[in-house]
Design a protein around this nucleic acid. Structure first.
Lengths: 343, 343
DNA sequence: CTGAAAGCGCTTACAG
DNA sequence: CTGAAAGCGCTTACAG
């Protein structure tokens, strides 16, 4: 490994001068600069990251902590974060907590998880990252972020009650409202809803959005509501109960997986989604365009969430003193496909 | 930030002693050890990663370079890599090259990509990782790995002609052979194949497997072969041409996306997959179980590929002198669902 | 414009 | 069992 010292010797200058050139200081003569730069190029010299990080306070790197990389939302958000930092010449390092893989879907009941988060933050601080982004696997109030952080931290896909920490989420409530309104505008007056698990924040927000739309459009609140488990089977079971009385002309599922379960039920009954009964999903997962007919659903702007989180973090890094923590909400879009029919 | 020096002062011992305790050296009295450990705990001291890395040669961290995180194969492989290293107390750092996102599916025609790989390797060497895993987005011969590596490197999901570098892939040929045999055992004698792009290595290997099975089972090579583009539309188009003459009773698609295209075509014709015509896929992507009927396909053991790559790398790190580079092939499984019927 | 020197927080022979 | 000292490769006042 070539070092500063060797470059300095080769050029017969001091290491200070080489360092100054490397760091774009202006106090070096054009002649030496060119000479040194040539040698640097020729030797393939790269500054030692450890030494630099040890000495300087800034490492130009940020840490990303992620609940679980295999969650459907993760890669999009990370891609957004990484694209933003790439543009701004920051290095992004990923720490994957693997909560779902290790502990299943109910991992947040496992108290050990807070220690794991704490430890990940500690490690990033030990590595001296300039900032940290915590990417959650689902919306929730995150209470395990310590107060005495050495580096700025922003939360993506969840929030916190700590007033000093920024977060970026998507506008879950409004998207659910928009989708419901869309259903109503298509002539549906009795809309069943297959919600997620009852205490889940996504469930609560989407339900709120649904109710808002119902109210705005002057409809009555449906009694056709089932809490389900976010998966295909529970969607199927819920459909079986909800649609038995033939009262509803549409079903709003709070995710695409449960919508697939509704398709299963309809299939079994010889009913066609979008024709006999309309169904709407949420998430715009890949499967939604492979279902037949293709599923009308809500698109969550994952990449934008990632980019926005990165932007907030970078602002905070660059203005540690006069930044304003903010709770940012990115808007979702409705993807209209073939599963919602006009009445 | 608490430092070694502060701990030492608090305990009235030298920093050497504290360092020795931290690194599990045995030459410390039980009494001092306990006293120091207590203070370390109390102060929440964490060793400075930079300082340690600068001084010691080993950082207990590895770098993962990935063509593109958003490829379907990426998260599984990475999850495998990270689980292995977590068990062995290594830190894994991810660098996402974002080739597909930046340059589309044909990015490897873009010569700039080799520089990007080179640069990623350089950066990891500057960070002083103990080793590097390169996770490819699709199988190919990787020729841009420099010879003068400072850290061991292993390739996952692709290979190289450099004899000193280990790689781990899956047995593409054998899986295609197995799937074809499965089709034949179900009574199919005329099997159409919708291959991927012609020069692609997956295409070549799968074709080889298909031919091997045909030969082993004493069948004649089918004339019903189309090269397609790996996507749904091209699968649809290929099906249209291949199935027009009603000669084939089954179609083997070299990925699930194209199989979905075949479903589209069959649907249009009022034909039922698995009943009127059998169809097999490859990859076992999420969509394959949401297609109707559920798609019989090849499962690629992504997590195993990741874990194996991690294992090979760790072996090489621990035995830099007497390790044997190897080309490892992980076996695939066949997932039998509903799209293949018995004749 | 240039360089000698201190120091970032550790680890590692080495001496006692 | 314990510690003084050198040194990893840089950056940063500071002096000239």
């Amino acid at each position: 490994m070539v070092t500063l010292k060797e470059i300095a010797e080769k050029c017969s200058v001091s290491i200070t001068t080489v360092s100054n050139i490397l760091n774009g200081k202006s106090n070096v003569s054009q002649e030496t600069k060119e000479r040194v730069l040539a040698v640097i190029k020729e030797t393939g010299y790269r500054p030692n990251y450890m030494a630099r990080g040890l000495r300087a306070s800034k490492t130009n790197s940020v840490g990303i902590i992620i609940d679980d990389l295999t969650e459907f939302s993760s890669t999009g958000i990370i891609d957004g974060i990484m694209s933003y930092f790439e543009e701004h010449h920051y290095k992004a390092i990923l720490e994957n907590l693997r909560f779902y893989s290790k502990w299943g879907t109910k991992w947040y009941h496992n108290k050990g998880y807070e220690d794991a988060v704490q430890q990940a933050i500690d490690e990033f601080e030990a590595i001296k990252v300039d900032g940290i982004i915590y990417v959650a696997g689902h919306a929730r109030c995150i209470s395990c972020i310590p107060d005495n952080l050495n580096a700025p931290l922003v939360i993506a896909y969840a929030f916190t009650e700590n007033p000093g920490i920024s977060s970026v989420e998507f506008d879950d409530m409004q998207a659910a409202c928009d989708m419901t309104t869309n259903l109503i505008k298509n002539g549906h007056k009795k809309i069943a809803v297959i919600a997620g698990t009852q205490k889940n924040i996504h469930t609560q927000r989407r339900l709120e959005g649904y109710k808002k739309a119902i109210k705005e459009q002057g409809l009555e609140d449906s009694r056709h509501l089932k809490y389900a488990n976010w998966d295909r089977e529970s969607g199927y079971e819920a459909a079986k109960e909800l649609l038995a009385d033939n009262e509803c002309t549409a079903v709003f599922c709070f995710n695409d997986l449960m919508a697939a379960g509704v398709y299963d039920y309809l299939d079994e009954k010889g009913l066609v989604p979008g024709k006999d009964i309309s169904v709407a999903g949420y998430d715009n997962r890949t499967i939604s365009q492979y279902l037949k007919p293709a599923l009308t659903t809500v698109e969550i702007p994952l990449v934008d969430i990632g980019r926005k989180a990165a932007e907030l973090l970078l602002n905070q890094i660059n203005n540690p003193d006069n930044f304003e923590p903010q709770q940012h909400f990115v808007q979702c879009g409705i993807i209209e496909r073939k599963s919602v029919g006009k009445l």
